[in-house]
Design a protein around this nucleic acid. Structure first.
Lengths: 157, 157
DNA sequence: GCGAATCGGAACGAATTGGTCCGATTAGCC
DNA sequence: GGCTAATCGGACCAATTCGTTCCGATTCGC
């Protein structure tokens, strides 16, 4: 249950990007400098974010990246999925992969499925707009009771 | 955001263990056979679960494992933490590790902290007792009443 | 048409993970 | 009381994945 460094960097970089005015041209080098992320790594991360559709890229001199959608429409789950792939706690939850010998008779899969939805719901409930906000306001805005748990009722699918 | 195979096996094995009567002697070989998990792997997993305090072990012939607590008092988060270590989405959230250059000035850390609590809360809300139940009953049992989001007030262990 | 700047993909090294094996320990039996 | 069998516990090794770096492809500005 730990996200990779790449995904971590992606969150930091996207948050930095969201603090610029919408539609601004943002090179990988600029955001790398702002965030402290190594330049080549920032390039790779932003490349993945672009191919996932969260950023739109322009090649060549004067090129760069910009947010494909308003920050409010991008969730933490979107960023993580862009870099790490689908959020699926186990292989058996991901529809296409079936390398588990138990597949048919596994008795915990339905429960794990529900737990997975809960985790993803928690991540989808955090928007990039929130992430870009000043930390000082964080406690007041999304502290303990702040954000609504979208997974409040465990929903088995 | 994917748990390791070891943690996956741990959940399956623990669920199988919870289906036996409380206090029953359970060898690694027995549970391996019941779950389909390779025997040496089951040994390793159960060893970690024991050293984490979720199982109590007895060595020698006639030894084995048994649940240290009632199934209702063990959460999915406990099992995952026993095998994978603390649930911390990023290194900076884990108190002891400070290898992030941004540490002090990072603007997204507070938000990530809240998201991390939400994820852990979702995992703490699923008890081993639920996992051990028959999948058929799952929807009827946990759907209605819903599980209470235990992360409203964070409890650090 | 040329040069600079930027993205995109490929390749390399490192760390973690997953699996296996052998030794330590204890109960049961002769 | 000693021996055998069964079981846990820790150490070792191969494999996959991750993280980083480097180089080529593309495009705009001059």
């Amino acid at each position: 249950m730990r996200l990779t460094s790449l995904a971590d960097y992606a969150v930091v970089v996207m948050a930095a990007a969201a603090r610029h005015e919408a539609g601004a041209r943002l090179s990988a080098g600029l955001l790398a400098e702002e965030t402290g992320v190594p330049v080549p790594t920032a390039q790779k991360v932003m490349g993945r974010l672009a191919s996932a559709g969260l950023l739109v890229s322009a090649r060549g001199a004067g090129g760069g990246f910009r947010l494909a959608r308003p920050a409010g429409g991008i969730s933490l789950a979107d960023i993580i999925e862009a870099v790490e792939g689908p959020i699926a706690m186990t292989n058996c939850i991901q529809g296409s992969i079936h390398d588990c010998a138990l597949e048919g008779s596994c008795r915990v899969k339905p429960h794990l499925n529900a737990a997975n939805d809960a985790v993803r719901g928690a991540l989808q409930g955090v928007s990039l707009e929130q992430l870009a906000r000043s930390p000082a306001k964080a406690g007041a805005q999304d502290g303990a009771g702040g954000w609504t748990p979208a997974f409040a009722g465990e929903q088995v699918r």
